[in-house]
Design a binder for these strands. Structure first.
Length: 712
DNA sequence: GAGTTTGAAACT
DNA sequence: CAGTTTCAAACTC
């Protein structure tokens, strides 16, 4: 049985959720030994994380063949903090109890059972086989079992070496490890921890541990392997292909024994050469049919820099996003949803040959992976692409905050203060350790200006690379639904949209289709944006929390968290945040001359006027819509009959010449009547009759291709 | 559309 | 923490 160091148990619970638990490594990527291609220590030498281990965040994706039944014991609650590091998005595996709210991290104070459908962020640790040591850096803790089986458990560590361990769906035989940096030369030990039952999570009691010892060894072959594909993450430039990793590592699972997870040993087999993929074969593994997984490839077509295998049946809760040209990697954390959703619903992958079918996301501006997992607050789902991959794009609607995955040690946002739906993203391969907090609607924001193309593997290689297209939702809402959430474009000129003056920034959103100038609130300025976010959080840890929240018990459901400070507006203009939010001022307000209270006659009058105005607007809108519809309908019904003459509208035949001729005809009738000394009434009648004839000629001529010929 | 007013955010 | 400045939205003309 593996042993978890006491330090681990005492360390993780309180630190992970704490702001101080996250440190952004400020070392530039180029200074990283791994990034710079410098020689690495020997295989067996300990790797002090402080120095030898490059700050190369990694995303580790592993597969587990754990039976799905392990994950179906729904009902337990999450950790006391309400957060979780491990979660799943599987609709069939109800893991809400082991999942945390989006954007938060779970405290890990005890080992968990390795299982499928979970993700966990681990820290890479150095090893000293045989030594009964325990070391800790930040939340990174390592220990060594008497048998020399070293392992560690951590979540988000201060060491700056996070690894996102992604366990695809149950039964998957493929997974990927994004980036291993120096691991190619140094023995690395990872404690692969996950949760197989909710109770284990809630009680933080381990039922099983699996230690993956990764060391540089010769290739170990095995029959019926479960392949773990290690893919080098994008380097610090974010553009290097995965082939940049020359050496690979080997390792094996050293311990098993969970009642729910069949014992097995997994060996990481080394692949020499320029390949960055490492085949990890289990020494003992139940022979199972490989289940389809989803590979999301981003980057240039044909040369993906970033590949992750996503499960199709039980999508991961980590959505990785890579934007070429950016050295940041993004991962969206979503919590479990028992619903419906989504993803592969209605289009299950049954063809095993589709395993690892890549989904290419092409946009006009960026390429990025598209999450396939359902989000906790998903409102709508984009219609499933026509590909057989069964991918469904989802999004979220909650407030989001974006932070760069860059190396900014001072950026240590309190995760608990991040709005729900935020996305933490380690920056694998960037050479830096960091986290990116993306707006949950980040993807959809990008889609506002670009379509995302989803393509199957075949489409990936085609010239067009397009098989199907799907318009991603905007601002968290599907375009298919009428409910676009309107967001007013900002007009910032001096703040670079990096201060709370900017509504977009304050709402944790990228500027999109705004009128701002010198905008930095975008992916192109991740670093500056991260600094700005950090600054805001330093000033006010709750800067990005909604201002309008639920009031105290007995008070109104909605109230301004800080209250307004109006002095001149009487809190009856939109200057007042309370009034703007359509709530009344409360005791927390410090306003002067407030008229925004329940019994205020001014307020009532204003409300009545506002209601009346709203009704008027609605009526006008309805009238316009009806009129427009009628006109459209009329044109639709009449056009075919009257536009047969070369498609021209009848009035186009009333040219100047036609009008002149018509007038001549009418004048001639008037002259005739005058010559015949006809009464005025008769003259008028003759003129009108002539006018009628002229009109008839014009109309009849409209059906001909020639211009009308009018003769009196 | 330009100018003014306003109050939150930022700064000192 | 208070006073001041900056800023962008709301508002007015």
């Amino acid at each position: 049985m593996d042993v978890v160091s006491p330090e681990l148990n005492s360390l993780l619970p309180d630190e992970i959720m704490d702001t101080e638990a996250i440190i952004m490594d400020d070392d530039p990527p180029a200074e990283s030994p791994a990034a710079s291609g410098q020689s690495q220590p020997s295989d067996d030498s300990p790797v002090p994380m402080e120095t030898d281990v490059p700050a190369v965040p990694e995303i580790v994706s592993l597969c587990s063949d754990a039976p799905p039944t392990q994950l179906t014991q729904a009902g337990t609650t999450s950790t006391p903090t309400g957060s979780t590091l491990c979660s799943t998005t599987s609709a069939t595996h109800s893991l809400s109890r082991v999942s945390l709210t989006s954007g938060s991290l779970q405290k890990l104070s005890a080992p968990f059972t390795l299982s499928a459908n979970h993700q966990i962020i681990l820290n890479k640790v150095a090893s000293s086989p045989g030594a009964d040591t325990t070391r800790s850096q930040g939340t990174t803790t390592t220990t060594t079992t008497p048998g020399g089986q070293q392992f560690m458990v951590t979540a988000i560590g201060k060491s700056g070496q996070p690894i996102v361990l992604q366990l695809p769906h149950t039964g998957s035989k493929s997974a990927s490890v994004q980036g291993l940096g120096e691991a190619k030369a140094n023995p690395q030990h990872f404690k692969v921890v996950t949760v197989s039952s909710a109770s284990q999570v809630s009680t933080l009691q381990a039922q099983q541990l699996k230690t993956v010892q990764i060391a540089k060894k010769t290739q170990v072959s095995s029959a019926g392997p479960i392949k773990f594909v290690f893919t080098k993450a994008v380097n610090n430039k974010g553009l290097t292909a995965q082939t940049s990793v020359s050496n690979v590592i080997t390792g094996r699972v050293l311990s098993t024994g969970s009642p729910v997870t069949p014992p097995r040993t997994i060996t990481l087999s080394e692949t020499l050469g320029s390949s960055s993929k490492i085949a990890i074969s289990p020494l003992k593994s139940p022979s199972k049919t490989m289940k389809p997984v989803q590979t999301v490839t981003v980057g240039g077509v044909g040369a993906p820099q970033f590949k992750t295998i996503f499960p199709l049946s039980t999508p991961s809760n980590v959505q990785q996003i890579q934007v070429p040209g950016s050295r940041f990697h993004y991962v969206r954390l979503v919590t479990a949803t028992t619903g419906s959703s989504t993803g592969h619903a209605g289009s299950p992958i049954t063809n095993s040959s589709m395993t690892a079918k890549p989904m290419v996301v092409n946009t006009t501006q960026v390429r990025m992976s598209v999450p396939i997992v359902p989000a906790q607050t998903m409102k709508q789902v984009v219609p499933k692409p026509l590909t057989s991959s069964g991918q469904v794009l989802t999004t979220q609607t909650q407030q989001r905050l974006i932070m760069p995955a860059t190396s900014l040690p001072q950026i240590q946002p309190n995760l608990t203060n991040l709005p729900p739906g935020t996305v933490l993203a380690p920056a694998p391969g960037s050479g830096n350790m960091g986290y990116a907090v993306l707006p949950a609607q980040y993807v959809t924001q990008l889609q506002q200006s670009a379509y995302v193309t989803l393509a199957s593997s075949s489409g990936f290689s085609t010239p067009t690379g397009i098989q199907t297209q799907a318009r991603l939702p905007l601002n968290g809402l599907s375009t298919s639904g009428a409910a676009f959430r309107p967001r007013k474009p900002c007009n910032c000129t001096k703040s670079q949209c990096l201060k709370l003056y900017c509504d977009c920034f304050a709402n944790g959103e990228f500027c999109q289709n705004c009128n701002c100038t010198n905008c930095f609130n975008n992916l192109e300025h991740e670093t500056d944006r991260a600094k700005a976010i950090k600054a805001c959080l330093d000033r006010n840890p709750e800067a990005f929390k909604p201002k309008i929240g639920k009031g105290k018990e007995g008070e109104s459901d909605r109230r301004h968290s800080k209250g307004c400070n109006c002095k001149r507006s009487g809190c009856l203009k939109n200057y007042c945040e309370c009034y703007e939010a359509k709530i009344m001022c409360s005791s927390t307000c410090k306003c002067v001359g407030c008229k925004n209270f329940e019994e205020s006659p001014e307020r009532k009058t204003l409300m009545h006027l506002a209601d009346a105005a709203e009704v008027r607007v609605q009526q006008q809108t309805a009238a316009k819509t009806k009129l427009s519809s009628q006109i459209s309908d009329l044109l639709t019904r009449t056009t075919p009959a009257i536009t047969s003459g070369g498609g021209r509208m009848p009035y186009t035949f009333v040219t100047k010449e036609v009008a002149e001729v018509t007038c001549e005809c009418l004048l001639e009738q008037a002259e005739q009547a005058e010559l015949n000394q006809q009464p005025q009434a008769t003259a008028e009648r003759m003129i009108l009759e002539e006018f009628g004839r002229c009109l008839m000629r014009i109309i009849s001529s409209a059906g001909k291709t020639d211009y009308p010929s009018i003769n009196c």
